[in-house]
Amino acid sequence: MKRRKSKRCGKCNIYNAENETAFVVEEVPDLAMLPGLGIYPGSIVYKEYCCRLGGPVVLKLQNRRVAIGKDVASSIMVEENSNEHD
């Protein structure tokens, strides 16, 4: 299930991005709650999985896990994190 909609990407939105992969956030929509949760350009997020049928994306940020609704996740542009140790 986990890789059904996922794809490897150069720059893509986090909703469609590969599961179980770390990404660097490139662009975020103008929603004040995102920086509060630690999602901002330059931050590193680990996409765990995406819930089916338009469900949220579950991300790991350091030791925390946050769930982001599909509408926002589709607007968060990310690029695969090439820095392994991050």
Binding site: R52, L53, G54, G55
Partner: peptide, 19 residues
């Protein structure tokens, strides 16, 4: 409870609210 919110977010979105 927040886990239920995550699981049913897609259903809730369809009726106009969020999980």
């Amino acid at each position: 409870l927040p886990r239920v919110a995550v699981l049913f977010d897609n259903v809730m979105r369809k009726i106009g609210i969020q999980g």
